[in-house]
Simulated assay, not measured.
Amino acid sequence: MRTHAETALSEGVTGIVAHATSRRPDELTPDTRLVDHLGADTQTYDHIARLVADRYGLPVDGTGLCDEAPTVGDVVTVVADSAARQAITESV
């Protein structure tokens, strides 16, 4: 079972991907492939990274995201991992 924070992050990141690809969030699933299904390119991934940085204050590299996140669910995972790393760094 996911926590409220995990659900909120997933919905927020899905909304960012939807915005960056001119889709509605309800059109996307965790298995939606950004390149194959949504036509994303490196500029799209850079846009997603900027939107994530603006919304969550997290450093996410668009090029790294492109390499690590072929699906919407993968983007959520990368952002969650980045948030966890930042939380650890800030607590030290």
Rank of each mutant, 00 (worst) to 15 (best):
V35D: 11
L38R: 09
T71L: 07
A5G: 12
A83Y: 06
A5F: 13
Y45T: 03
A18P: 04
V78W: 04
R24M: 11
H47S: 15
V92L: 14
G57E: 01
V17A: 00
S10L: 03
P59Y: 01
A84Y: 10
S10C: 10
A87P: 05
H47P: 01
G12M: 05
D36W: 08
V75W: 08
E11Y: 05
Q43C: 15
I88L: 14
R50M: 14
A20G: 07
D26L: 09
T3W: 04
L38C: 11
V92P: 00
V78A: 04
D67K: 12
D54F: 09
V78D: 06
A69W: 02
V92T: 12
T44S: 14
P70H: 12
L9I: 05
L34Q: 00
Q86K: 14
A5T: 10
E27T: 12
R50F: 10
V52C: 07
T63C: 06
V13K: 02
C66E: 11
P70V: 03
L58Q: 05
Q86C: 05
T29M: 13
R50K: 14
Y45P: 02
A20S: 02
D54K: 06
E11N: 11
V72A: 07
R85Y: 09
I48M: 02
R85T: 12
S91A: 14
G73H: 01
L28Q: 09
D54Y: 04
T42D: 01
Y56N: 06
H4P: 04
L9R: 05
R85P: 05
I48L: 08
G62H: 04
T21Y: 10
C66L: 13
A80M: 02
V13G: 03
R33A: 09
A84I: 02
V72L: 08
T71W: 00
D46A: 15
I16Y: 10
A8H: 08
V60L: 11
R50V: 13
T14W: 02
R85Q: 04
R50T: 13
G62N: 04
A49K: 00
D67S: 15
D67R: 14
G39T: 02
T32K: 01
A69C: 07
T21E: 00
R24Q: 14
V60Q: 08
R50G: 09
L65E: 04
M1G: 14
D26A: 13
R33P: 01
T44Q: 04
S91V: 09
R23L: 09
T42A: 15
A87I: 07
P70Y: 11
E68R: 12
T29E: 11
L58H: 06
E90L: 15
R24V: 08
T89F: 07
S10V: 03
E11D: 15
G57K: 01
I16K: 01
L51C: 10
D31C: 07
E27R: 15
I88M: 12
D61L: 12
P59V: 05
P59M: 01
A53R: 10
D26C: 13
D81Q: 12
T7L: 12
D26V: 15
D41C: 03
V52M: 07
I16E: 01
